[in-house]
Nucleic acid binder design. Sequence first.
DNA 1: CGACCGATCGTCT
DNA 2: GACGATCGGTCGA
Length: 207
Amino acid sequence: MEIIPATHFEQADTLMLAKALIGKILVSNIEGLSTMGRIVETEAYLGVTDKASHAFGHRKTKRTSTMYLKGGHAYVYLCYGIHHLFNIVTHEEGVPHAILIRAFEPLEGIDTMLHRRGKTKLDFTLSRGPGSVSKALGIHTQHSGLLLNSDWLYVADDSEAYSQESVIATPRIGVGYAGVDALLPYRFLLKGSKLVSGKGLTNTIPT
DNA sequence: CGACCGATCGTCT
DNA sequence: GACGATCGGTCGA
């Protein structure tokens, strides 16, 4: 399995990067515990021109300043006072693009993930939804601003083949406030995956 | 199965 | 002082 270096995310085409993340492996080594899963759902947030992005209109605050770092950094923020949502920053320094990881298929460290999630048995809710993703992997807002690397968290490619047709694009979830931008097809998912979040899909069938 | 609701708090106006 | 890039539980059809 090949580690994808943080510099990979310095590329400018965030939509391409978000699509290409589908099928890749996310590995965390946090608090001495190793967990791993295959990414099945992502969303792209295109910075200053994207009404759904925290950086829309060049908004830059203490919280969102990490989005302006160069690609390959982690952007983690607290949502609804409860959930820690994990993004990978993309593009060059100063351009606040990011990719939200919304769901993955658990591969290793399942006992650890179950414990972190307060569950006793594996089902499709373990790592479905961006809040669940971070909780299962042990990602916390304190990780925001860190560069992805093998010390704590990285993306890897196990060369499992996914055809372009197996990845589909849909509008993003929960961004109704973004007006017309809420309709943009910036959400990518593995077609037919039962592990994908949101409503109106075949995601209610237990594995 | 869908609709609704409460939890919970940092961030921004 | 209001509001989320959410989740899990409950309620009713």
